[in-house]
């Protein structure tokens, strides 16, 4: 591969990243704006952050969102993992192709339709809209994402690990909890994180399925923005970005470290082996 960057490449990278990140950078900068007017820069200040923490409405919404995201991500992870297991393991049951297709469908289904259909369901069974219904709705759509993430890991999972565990006397349940789950846990954790973030920033489905007393942060932000963007909203969004970015960066650093450590271990094992058998490489 050619390591040097041509001018064309540099221009493409700059353009691409500008397109992606300029709006976000602007938002972060203006969250530190002194002025009440969002578009006029009047010096650096953190007062909107202070004000934010005295805005009970926004804090309540944030707390609701956090709880909804945590519960729905956790339940969706359990359900999604089981769905993925069923779809990769029992390859010979009738209608497997149909079920696999159906687990993917919600990923491409317009959110409006998912939201509306869930609303109709809740109305039909007489479930009062609120915290419960929005959580259920988030479980429903996040579960598919988890299933897809875990399924792709299971496809490369060495089944002989499970056979070895059973061969050594472990019951199917013990095998699952002591061998399968620990091995696929990175995929399960990233499935959970995906479900959590999806729930965190969902507006459309929440708008359909939420009710009084269960306003999520995106709903709150959206309703406030309709009255005009305030620097307070910028501050909230900056905090959200910081939280998500920290999570993503931390996860990738941990992964990278583990990978480097693993490679080093493997090289060392190989070297020890070569020395043991008197071979020079």
């Amino acid at each position: 591969m050619n390591a040097t960057l041509s001018r064309f490449n540099i221009v493409s990278i700059v353009l691409g990243f500008t397109f992606l990140y300029l709006p976000i950078v602007l938002l972060v900068i203006y969250s530190f704006n002194e002025s009440r007017l969002v578009t006029v820069w009047a010096g650096f200040s953190t007062k909107w952050y202070v004000e934010l923490f005295s805005n009970q409405g926004l804090l309540d919404a944030a707390w609701v969102t956090a709880r909804v995201a945590f519960i729905s991500a956790s339940v969706a992870t359990v359900l999604g993992t089981f769905a993925a297991l069923a779809l990769t393991r029992y390859t010979r049951f009738h209608g497997r192709t149909l079920f696999t297709g159906m687990i993917f469908a919600p990923l491409v289904m317009p959110e409006v339709i998912t939201g509306l259909s869930l609303l109709l369901l809740f109305v039909a069974i007489g479930l009062d809209r609120g915290f419960m219904t929005v959580t259920l709705a988030h479980i429903t759509f996040a579960m598919c994402f988890v299933a897809v993430v875990v399924q792709s890991r299971l496809l490369s999972f060495d089944r002989s690990l499970e056979e070895a565990a059973m061969d050594l006397g472990a019951s199917p349940a013990t095998t699952f909890f002591q061998v399968t789950l620990p091995v696929i846990s990175p995929a399960v954790v990233s499935g959970w994180m995906l479900a959590f973030t999806l729930s965190l920033d969902d507006l459309v489905i929440a708008s359909f399925t939420s009710g009084p007393g269960a306003t999520t942060l995106p709903m709150k932000i959206y309703s406030q923005v309709r009255l005009g963007v305030t620097p307070e909203i910028n501050a909230v969004c900056t905090i959200l970005i910081a939280v998500v970015a920290t999570g993503v960066i931390a996860a990738s650093i941990v992964n990278k470290r583990r990978e480097v450590q693993r490679r080093r271990d493997e090289q060392e094992a190989q070297r020890a082996n070569n020395i043991a058998f008197g071979r020079n490489t």
Binding site: D158, S160, L161, E163, D167, L168, P182, V183
Partner: peptide
């Protein structure tokens, strides 16, 4: 008991 071709050692 069986010894597997891939060894099937538990990686964790």
């Amino acid at each position: 008991n069986m010894m597997f071709q891939s060894y099937a050692l538990f990686p964790h």
